[in-house]
Design a protein around this nucleic acid. Sequence first.
DNA 1: ATAAAATATTACTTCAAAGTAGCATTTAAT
DNA 2: ATTAAATGCTACTTTGAAGTAATATTTTAT
Lengths: 137, 137
Amino acid sequence: MKLSNTSEYALRILCFMTKDENRLYSAKYLIDELKISDKYLRRLMTDLTKAGFITSIQGRDGGYKFLKSSGEIYLADVINAVEGMDKYTGCALGFCECSDTNPCVMHSTWVPVREEFLKAFTTKTIRDLDIMTVTKY
Amino acid sequence: MKLSNTSEYALRILCFMTKDENRLYSAKYLIDELKISDKYLRRLMTDLTKAGFITSIQGRDGGYKFLKSSGEIYLADVINAVEGMDKYTGCALGFCECSDTNPCVMHSTWVPVREEFLKAFTTKTIRDLDIMTVTKY
DNA sequence: ATAAAATATTACTTCAAAGTAGCATTTAAT
DNA sequence: ATTAAATGCTACTTTGAAGTAATATTTTAT
C-alpha cells in the first residue's frame, strides 16, 4: 500500500509545480528541490509530456510547464501515464480472472479497500492535494 | 495495491487449510494444490510455524496443522509474520516522518484508503475469508 | 539399526523495478 | 556560426523480492 517510486515521483513533481502554476520549471531546478535523480526525473517528465499534462520547451532557457490545468489532472491519470493502474486495481491475490461472480478468497475483503482507493484517485486532482499545508513534496 | 507474493501465499495457504481445519497437511500436498514452489512454500511454513499459527510435525508422516484456531488468526498477523505490515501502512509517498501534524501532500487523500485497509486486515481473520463460495485459493 | 518420508536451513540464482551513464538533439544569446 | 544550456533517447548497472538447489535434521515403520 505504498505507491511505486515511479508514481510517487510523478505525483510529487506535478504537485510541486502547482506552487506557481504558470511558471516554467527546468529539470535542474526540480531535481534540486525534489531530490530525484537526474535521469529518472527526465524520463518521467517525458512520460508526463507525452500524456499531455505538461509541455516541454527544448533548447536554452527551456523547461516544463503545465499544458492542462492542475485541476483537470486526476491522480489516476498520472499513474496511468507512468506505469498503469492495473497493479493498483487488481485482485489482492493476483488472480487475473477474479471478479464478483468468480471471486477469490480475499475478494469480499478487498473490494471495499479497492473502492476507497479508486474513489480517492479518480475524484481527486493534482490541485486537490494538500499543497498549502505542507513543506515536503 | 496488490499484496506481495509472500503475503499472498501465506494467506492462501492458511485459508486452504481451513477446508478441513483439524487435518494434518503435508508440504507436498499443499504444493500440489496451491501451485506454490516447493522451497518457497516450505520457507513460509517455517515462518507461520514460528509465529504460532500452525505447528509442524517432523519426521515420517509429518506435516502441518493449526495450532491456533483460524478464527483467532487476523490477516494483519499473517502479514506481520511473513514480511511485516510497515510496507502497507506507511505514507503513500514513502516519507518516513509523515503524520497528521506533519503531512505530505498526499496525506489527506491517503488516510481513508489506509483506514479501510487497516479495518479489513485487523478485523478479519482467516476464518472470515470467502472459503465456501470459492474454488480458487 | 536402517530406510523412507517428512520438515529445516543456508546459500545461490533469477527477474523486474529502480537508478545511472553517455551521447544526441534542440534552441537562444552572442 | 558558435557556444551554452536545456531536453530526449538508448543502453547499462544495481538492488531487493522471488524463486531454486543442495544438504542437514527429525521421526516412524520395518
